[in-house]
Structure formats: structure tokens, C-alpha cells
Computed example of a mutant assay.
Amino acid sequence: MELSTWRRRLALAGCGTAVILLAAAPLAAAETSGTPVAPITLSPEESQQVCGDWVPKLTTRATKLTDRINGGPEVAGSVANLKARAEDQKKKGHADAADRLTKRAEKRSGRLADLATAKQKLDAFTGAHCKPAAPAPTK
């Protein structure tokens, strides 16, 4: 019995997929074993880059996001804006769209806790690892 080209290709693809899944299963199980991860060490240059470039950018980004979420109805992306849009959709008779906007507003307001935690972690990192710039020596 001869298999057509497509059936042969399908059989090969199925066998290949099965082999990959069997080979990947132990690897996936090993990743979730809970083994401790070694701490990351940074060189002084890398630490300076993190403290000088990344931490200020991340802090600014978290602050801007918090301000946007807490903004009034005129601020695009704020919780108040989403709720106002939901009310507008309800008035127009679009209940599904109003529900989606309300859910987005609830989810977005839940992000404030995440942003506060991120700010705390950034502040803790800055306090522990970033030294303030030393003043230039005077003569």
C-alpha cells in the first residue's frame, strides 16, 4: 500500500511533533522543580548604568502611568475616562461595550497596587545599590 505524498508528510509531521513533545516534557518538568537561582552580580560599570539610566527611566514611567490612571475624565486612559465612556455607551444602548469599558476600568485601577510595589522596589534598589554622585573636590 503506497501512501500519497501528503499523507506521508502528515505522518512525518505527526511523528516529529510526538518526538519533540516527548523530549521537551522532562525539560519542562525540570524548570519547575523549584531549584534556587543564583543571585545576579553586576560589575561597577553595569551597576552605574542601571543606577544612572534604567532606574530613573523606570521610576519616571511608573510615575507617569500612576498619574494617567488617576487622571480625570479628560485624561485618555484614566479610570475616570473609561467610566465616563462606559456611561456614554450605556446611554446610547450599547450594554456590551459599556461592560467591557467598566471591566477595563476595574482592571486598570487594580494596576495601581502593582505600580506602587514597583516604585517601592526601585526605591529599595536605589537605596541599597546606587551611591549618590560624589561632589567634585575643591581646591
Rank of each mutant, 00 (worst) to 15 (best):
T63M: 00
Q49T: 14
A38N: 09
R108W: 03
L58N: 04
A116S: 07
H129P: 00
A76R: 15
V55D: 00
K83V: 06
K121F: 05
A38F: 05
H129M: 12
L122Y: 04
C15G: 11
A23K: 01
A24Y: 06
V55H: 05
L82R: 09
P73Q: 12
A29C: 01
F125P: 04
T32S: 12
S47L: 12
R9L: 15
M1H: 02
P26R: 05
P56A: 02
R85A: 08
K83Q: 15
Q48K: 08
K119G: 11
R104H: 11
D88S: 13
L10M: 14
R7M: 10
A28Q: 15
D114N: 13
R61F: 15
A98R: 03
A116H: 05
L122T: 05
P73V: 09
L3C: 11
D99I: 03
T66K: 03
E2Y: 08
A24C: 04
G127S: 13
G52S: 15
G110C: 10
T5A: 05
L82Q: 06
P39F: 07
F125M: 00
V75S: 11
R9P: 04
E2M: 04
K91T: 07
A29D: 02
K139G: 12
G110F: 09
K121H: 14
A76L: 10
I20A: 14
A30I: 03
L112F: 02
P36A: 15
G93H: 07
A62D: 13
K107W: 08
A29R: 14
A133F: 08
R111P: 01
A38L: 14
E87D: 11
H129W: 14
A13H: 00
P132R: 06
P73F: 00
L101T: 01
T126R: 10
T59K: 03
P73T: 08
K103D: 07
A134G: 07
E45V: 15
E31T: 04
T126S: 12
D67V: 07
E74L: 11
L12P: 00
V37F: 05
M1Q: 10
A116L: 05
L112V: 09
L27P: 03
N70G: 10
L12K: 02
L10K: 06
I69R: 01
S43T: 15
A18Q: 03
W54N: 06
V19H: 01
K119I: 02
R7P: 04
